[in-house]
C-alpha cells in the first residue's frame, strides 16, 4: 500500500511538472494583461494558435526553439489585435476576447490541417533525475526548459510589478484610470503593450503543448487550458508567484485520475478527473471568505466595475 501511495505521489509530482506549464504561461500572460485593467479571454485562442504555429515552424525549420519564438510572435500579433480593438471607444473587452478566441482557434485549425500528420522535432527535456536509478523518477524529473523559463518569467514579472517604474505604471493604469490620467500616463498604450506581451506568453504556453507535452499537433489538443488559466489568475489573486503554485496544484490534481487507476483504485474515476476543478472551487471559497473576494483585483477590470 505504501508503495502505491508513493507511486501516486510520484505521478502527481511528475504530472504537476508536465501538465502545469501551459497553465503557468497563460496565467502569467493573463495576469499581466489584467494588471493593466483589461481582460483577455482570447488567450485560449492564442494558446491553440501558438501550438499550431510552433509545431508547423519546428517541422519546417527543424528547430523547436524557432517554433517557440514563432508561437510568441503569433501571440504578440493576436494579442496586439485585441489590445488595439479594445482601446477603441465602447468596445467590450470580454466580447472582443471571445471573438479573438474563436478567431485564434479557427485560424489554427485552418492552417494547421497539413501539420496533423507529420512529426515535428520536439523540445528536449533536461534530465534532473540523472542521480536516480529508477526510471519512474528519471522520467518524472525530465523537465522541459520552458517550465524553467516560466518560473523565471513569474519571478521577473513579480519583480517588475513591485520594483520597477514600468510595473508601477501598469498597476496605476490597472487600478485607477483617474490617477493615471492625472499623472499623464499613456493608458491605451500601456494596456496595448500589456495585452500583446501577455498573449505572447500564452503563445509560448501553446508551444509547450505541441512541442513538449503531449507533443503533437491536432485539433483536440487544448482542452480549455486557456480558459482555466483565467480562473487561475483569480485564484492566485493577481500575483505572478502565486500563479506558479496554482498551476502546479492544478497539474498535480489533474494527474490524480490516471495514476489512481494504475495502482488499482478504479472506482469513481470521473470524480477524480474533476479533481482540478474541485480544488479550484475549494481554494476560491476558502480564500474568499470574510468578504475578501476582491483583494488584489485591479480596480479597472470590467468584471469588477
Amino acid at each position: 500500500m505504501s508503495g502505491s501511495i508513493a507511486t501516486v505521489l510520484l505521478a502527481m509530482l511528475a504530472g504537476s511538472l508536465r501538465v502545469s506549464t501551459p497553465f503557468l504561461f497563460v496565467s502569467l500572460g493573463e495576469c499581466l494583461t489584467e494588471k493593466s485593467g483589461r481582460i483577455n479571454l482570447g488567450n485560449e485562442g492564442v494558446l491553440v494558435l501558438g501550438a499550431m504555429v510552433a509545431y508547423a515552424t519546428s517541422y519546417e525549420t527543424g528547430s523547436p526553439w524557432a517554433g517557440v519564438a514563432a508561437a510568441a510572435l503569433a501571440g504578440l500579433l493576436l494579442g496586439g489585435l485585441h489590445g488595439e480593438v479594445c482601446s477603441l471607444a465602447k468596445v467590450n473587452d470580454v466580447a472582443m476576447g471571445i471573438a479573438i478566441m474563436l478567431a485564434g482557434t479557427g485560424i489554427a485549425f485552418f492552417f494547421g490541417k497539413p501539420y496533423v500528420q507529420p512529426s515535428a522535432t520536439l523540445l528536449p527535456g533536461i534530465p534532473f533525475g540523472f542521480w536516480s536509478a529508477s526510471p519512474q523518477v528519471r522520467n518524472a524529473l525530465l523537465v522541459c526548459p520552458l517550465f524553467l523559463v516560466g518560473i523565471a518569467a513569474a519571478i521577473g514579472l513579480h519583480w517588475c510589478f513591485n520594483a520597477t517604474r514600468a510595473g508601477l505604471r501598469i498597476r496605476i493604469v490597472g487600478d485607477s484610470q483617474d490617477a493615471a490620467l492625472a499623472l499623464g500616463l499613456p493608458i491605451d498604450r500601456t494596456r496595448f503593450i500589456a495585452t500583446a506581451c501577455g498573449s505572447a506568453l500564452a503563445g509560448i504556453g501553446g508551444a509547450f503543448l505541441s512541442l513538449y507535452y503531449p507533443g503533437s499537433w491536432n485539433e483536440g489538443l487544448s482542452s480549455g487550458q486557456g480558459l482555466m488559466a483565467v480562473a487561475l489568475v483569480v485564484f492566485s489573486r493577481w500575483n505572478p508567484i502565486n500563479c506558479i503554485y496554482a498551476s502546479l496544484l492544478f497539474g498535480a490534481a489533474g494527474a490524480l485520475g490516471p495514476s489512481l487507476q494504475t495502482v488499482g483504485i478504479t472506482w469513481g474515476y470521473y470524480l477524480f478527473y474533476a479533481a482540478p476543478y474541485v480544488v479550484t472551487l475549494v481554494v476560491l471559497i476558502i480564500t474568499a471568505r470574510g468578504g475578501r473576494s476582491l483583494r488584489g483585483m485591479p480596480g479597472q477590470l470590467s468584471i469588477g466595475r
Binding site: T7, Y213, S223, S259, Y273
Partner: peptide, 26 residues
Amino acid sequence: TVIFTGEWSMPVKEAEAANSLADQGI
C-alpha cells in the same frame, strides 16, 4: 491494466495515462 479517460479524444489525459502506465512498469 486498463485506464478509462472518459472522453473519446483528450490528448493531454491520454498522454498522462500512457505515462502513468509506463511508470508502473507496463
